[in-house]
Every structure is written in C-alpha cells, then in structure tokens.
Design a protein around this nucleic acid. Structure first.
Length: 576
RNA sequence: GCCAGCGUAGCUCAGCGGCAGAGCAGCGGUUUCGUAAACCGCCGGCCGUGGGUUCGAGUCCCACCGCUGGCUCCA
C-alpha cells in the first residue's frame, strides 16, 4: 500500500514541478529554467527571473497551477535528437548546458499544454491527475549547487495523493515547529544565544546546564566503564602546532584568526586531536599499553560562515564528546566494534531506536598509501559485519586522512540527524610521528581513531530537545517534580516534603506563590515537569501526596514511599 | 559568504509619513482556592545600529549588525 502510493507520488510531484514551471512562465515570459526534481517531501524548480519573487507571486502561481490542472492537459512524451533539443531550447541557457552534458544521443521532452520541458520522466498521464498541492517557500539556490555560478530562485512545493495526506504533512510541519529547539530552549529557559556576545555562541541557563551536566555525567561513567580515560587539554595552542597537524593548510577557513601573545601566535583550537597527540608523546609507549582510549569533552571553536548558523545545531563554539584511540593495526577491528557498541548503547538509552549506518571510502585527495586505505576500509567492513549491522557505502566520501563510519539517527518525527562518527586517521600519526615500541623492539606507527558518539553536546542537545519535544525522561528532567500546595496553610508541609525528597537526591521544586493551584498545575505542565505533587489538607494530615503526571493523568493519593519507588524506577530505567 | 524575507516592551504581535499600542510575562494589592490561566492596579520602549530624504520617519532610501527560510559548507 505504501509502495503503491509512493510509486504514484513521484511522477505526480515531478509533474507538479512542470506545471509550476508553466505557471511561472505565464507570469514571467522571459524566465530561464533550471531543473525541477522531486525531493523527499515534494518538489522544487529553479528559475532565473527578472525580479525577486514575493509571497503574492506564490499565490498567483498557485492559482495558475490550479487552472492548468483543471484543464487536464495530457503529458506528451517525445524523443528528440540533441540537435532538435538545442533548437527547442534555443533561448534556455541552462537547458542548453544540460543538453550539452547529457551523454545520450537521444533525449526526451515532455509537453503539457503550452509548456515543453527537457525531462527523463515519468509523468502522470495528464495534469488533472496531480493531487492536492501547496507551494511552500522561495529560496536562493546556486545553479548546479556551485557557489561560483548564478543564483537562481527556487520554489519549493509539495503534492499528495489526497487532501488528507497533504493536511497531515502540513500538520507534521507545524508539529516540528512546536518542537523547534530554539523555541523550546527559550520557553523552558534552557539556553540562549546573544547578540551582545556574538552569533553561534551558546549560553546555558541553569536548567539547560543541569540537563547538559546529566548527559555529561552519564557519558563520563560509560566511558570509564569501557576502558576510556578522561583528559583535559588547553583551549589555545601556538600556531606552529597547527602547521604540524596540517590544519593550518587544510582547515584554515574554519579556524579563528591567530592572536598575539608576547610576540607568539596562538590559535583557539578547532579540534582536540593535536593536544591528545602531544600528551601521548610525553613518553615512549610499549605495544603492551595499547590501546589507549583518551576521551575529552573538548570545547572547540570554528569559524562558520554567518549564513549557516542555526540554533544549537550549527554554532561557532561547541563541545565535542571526543576521543582518540591509539592502537596497533591488529586492534583496530575490535576497537571499532567497541565504539559502535558504545554508540549504539548511548543512542538507545536516549530513545533513538532507528539509525542508518554509512561507510565512507577513499576520496580523490587522500593521505597515506592505497594499501593502508584498503586494509582500513576492509577492517571497518569486518567490524560492521561482526555486529551484523546493515550499512550503505558512500564511495569517495571519506575524509582525506582515512575512511569513516557515520551513524544517522532518526528522531521521534522520523527526521535524520548526524550522530556518532568513527574516523580512522593515517595522517596525524605520520605528521607527528606517533609511534609505539613493538614486540620486535622497533618503532611502529600507531593507528589512530577519532570518534564521537554524541557529535557535539550542543547539537546533540538540540536534537534531544526536539526528539522529546522538551518533555525529558525523568532521569534527564532538569526539574523532576514540583510540589504544589493548595493554599498558604500547606506551605510548611510542602517545604518539608520537598526537603525530604531532595535528601533522597531528587530534583524537586516548590511552587509557593500566592496563586491558585490551577495556575501552578498549568505552568508545571507547560514546563513539562514529569511529576506534580499536590498537597492540601488531606495530604498534610496523612503525610502523603497527590500525584499528577504531565500527561494530565491524576493518580490520586500516594505515600511518599510509593512515589519514591516509582520515580526511582523511572530513573533506574532511564524511562519516561 | 550568497539569494529572499524579517528586526516595535522579557515573549507573541498590531501600528506602515503626523501624540508608540494590545495580550501574556513582571511588580503591588485583594483572594486561600482540590488537578491546564482568580480579580484590581502599576511599571515597562535610543521602534536593531548608523547615516540620508522630509516641516515631520517604527513608517521611505542606503549601509552595517542580528535573526528566519534556503544554497554552499558542516560536529
């Protein structure tokens, strides 16, 4: 059923793109046309127009599209040779470029009504078969994705087979907006970004800091348990170090400018690896010591172009949950397995049940020899096979210094986020001459693995906020319970109850404002506090509490012991 | 960085050449209440910043800063 729908949806969306192009040409007869493909949730078409599009234009285009659809023009497929195609699109510079580059001698064009487009198809039989649609937004897009080429105007739209599905899609977008971490970050008072400080720099408010610390504590405990050791390294280092590492040459565009300190140049670190390597080199290492797994919640600063900054997910200062594993070649496979297992455990703990794994192989520009690349890539494949994990190969997408495994996690709305990454590095051990003394008494180059499981704390928290829609499970909730007295005379009891629970290690607040209970319940609910403990005459007399969940459920009277059992269970399970 | 849009009170927004507004939040009071908003009052603004046009500029123009949606890039 699903596949039937998607089978129809593709041609429908592609056809809608053609209809949109026709409508745009009605409005702008001199428009130059780029390409108009289908995408994940709809379609787009790129145009070169004499003036910028306005929201009113979108409405006009939509109504022309409705006319074209109502007229039910058939889509006519036609095969032409390149010469004929060039004539057909004689005034369309972008189409001519496409024709020029297509390898096939014969091309296809599709006509509907008065409009003809170069297109492989397929399309629906006629414009009338296009389902309910909506144009969504206008954006600039470089021709062929190249920032040195002209910028075209792209219109995004979507089509569904039924109006119910279209409505469901639009509702899903609204839901995503409600969960937006930037909005929830403000509403729940978790973090802020401030113009006075500069863009892309995050301020963690007390509640957000609490959340962050809880995640970091969990992260630290898991790492110690799995044989990692924690380290700390400085935030700045002499520019020379970055020359040695190769970052100055290869990563400079992402680095902040050097600063002068007593005539020496220093740079704020964009990565943690050189620091770990310097520590490694403070003494000789025997093959018996390896692997060394050094982890650091390392805060790095990278220059990002202003236009790419976005909430917590793209910032200029962030903390990587970084680790570098120094190991022997024969240890690489088991180390990779260990990292993937750790990553999987952490992701599942945070409620991410679905993910996709990609293995990126050797790019065109690379460090090291073909042999090491092949060996390392094969090792990564063996590790994934050992774990029986399905994965896709991304050819040529590896970093210049080694192949990598990327994990993309899916959140509660099915959106994909960049999660754990594991990268083998052949470059830095060579550049810094990072070695160990082997069984044979000789020096051997270590194999170095860079890995993160959360990516960066900032981005991960952004993702987590949206995943949970701000309603964090009890073990992560900045405030786990709020005690709500019904009237002033229950204040003492409320205080004592909160104090008792805090002594049990729980994060409990009291709401002693001179407000009605209804308001306090409402606000606790809006703040997504998991438990509301309501206390009035009956509770004060009985020494118990009345329990309400943020789901709205009223569980009635509970003893303190009952509540403790319940919440401890939640915390232990890292559930709800 | 590029294209487009947007910056008015802490937040959400109205005002679009002629006296800066509303709701919520905050503060003060009244109310002491049984599971999602009690009532009354008060405070609150270099209308993002700088320049220009005009008798007069939140309002029109220019530049810069920031944000939003994309593009490119990315943890």
């Amino acid at each position: 059923m699903q596949s039937q729908d998607t089978d129809k949806l593709g041609p429908m969306r592609h056809s809608a793109a053609h209809v949109m192009a026709e409508a745009v040409r009605q409005l702008f007869p001199d428009a130059q046309f780029g390409i108009g493909p289908t995408i994940q949730d709809g379609f787009y078409y790129d145009f070169d127009l004499p003036r910028p599009l306005t929201p009113e234009d979108l409405a006009d285009i939509e109504s022309s599209m409705r006319d074209i659809i109502a007229a039910d023009y058939p889509f006519l497929r036609e095969e032409v040779d390149k010469e004929a195609a060039r004539e057909l699109f004689a005034h369309q510079i972008y189409k001519l470029e496409l024709i020029q580059e297509l390898p096939e001698p014969r091309l296809t064009v599709y006509r509907q009504g008065s409009f003809t487009d170069l297109c492989r198809g397929p399309h629906v039989a006629s414009t009338g078969q296009i389902g309910p649609f909506k144009l969504l937004s206008v954006a600039g897009a470089y021709w062929r994705g190249d920032e040195n080429r002209p910028m075209l105007q792209r219109i995004y739209g979507t089509v569904f087979a039924t109006s119910q599905e279209l409505a469901a899609y639009l509702t899903r977008r609204e839901e995503a907006e409600r969960r937006d971490h930037r909005r929830l970050g403000r509403e729940l008072d978790l973090f802020s970004l401030q113009e006075a400080a500069g863009p892309g720099l995050v301020f963690w408010h007390p509640k957000g800091a609490r959340l962050r610390r809880l995640i970091e504590d969990f992260w630290v405990a898991e790492h110690y348990q799995r044989g990692y050791q924690l380290v700390y390294t400085p935030h700045v280092a002499k520019t020379d170090l970055w020359h040695t590492s190769g970052h100055w040459e290869l990563y400079r565009e992402n680095m902040f400018s050097p600063m002068d300190v007593e005539g020496q140049e220093y740079i704020i670190k964009p990565m943690n690896c050189p620091g770990h390597i310097l520590m490694y080199q403070t003494h000789l290492h025997s093959y018996r010591e390896l692997p060394l797994r050094w982890a650091e919640l390392g805060t790095v600063y990278r220059y990002e172009r202003s236009g790419v900054l976005h909430g917590l997910t793209r910032v200029r200062g962030f903390t990587q949950d970084d680790a570098h594993i120094f190991c022997r070649p024969d240890q690489l496979e088991s180390e990779v397995v260990g990292v993937v297992e750790l990553a999987r455990y952490m992701m599942e703990t945070f409620g991410f049940k679905e993910y996709e794994i990609r293995l990126s192989t050797r790019p065109e520009k690379y460090a090291g020899t073909l042999e090491v690349w092949e060996e390392a890539t094969a090792t990564l494949e063996r590790a994934l096979a050992q774990l029986a994990l399905p994965y896709e190969i991304d050819p040529g997408e590896g970093v210049f210094y080694g192949p990598k495994i990327d994990v993309r996690i899916k959140d509660a709305l099915g959106r994909a986020w960049q999660g754990p990454t594991i990268q083998v590095d052949f470059n830095l051990p060579l550049r810094f001459h990072v070695t160990y003394v082997g069984e044979d008494g000789k020096e051997h180059l270590v194999v170095m693995v860079h890995r993160t499981v959360l990516g960066s704390i900032e981005r991960f928290l952004g993702c987590l906020i949206e995943h949970y829609a701000g309603a964090f499970p009890v073990w992560l909730a900045p405030v786990q319970a709020v005690v709500i007295p019904i009237s002033d005379r229950h204040e003492d009891y409320a205080r004592r109850l909160a104090e008792e629970l805090r002594r049990e290690g729980l994060r409990v607040e009291t709401d002693l404002r001179s407000e009605r209970m209804n308001l306090k319940v409402r606000e606790a609910q809006l703040n997504k506090v998991p438990y509301m403990l309501i206390v009035g005459d009956k509770e004060a007399a009985a020494g118990n509490l009345s329990l309400r969940l943020r789901s709205g459920q009223d569980l009635g009277p509970q003893t303190v012991a009952q509540f403790l059992t319940r919440i401890r269970e939640d915390i232990a399970q890292k559930a709800s």
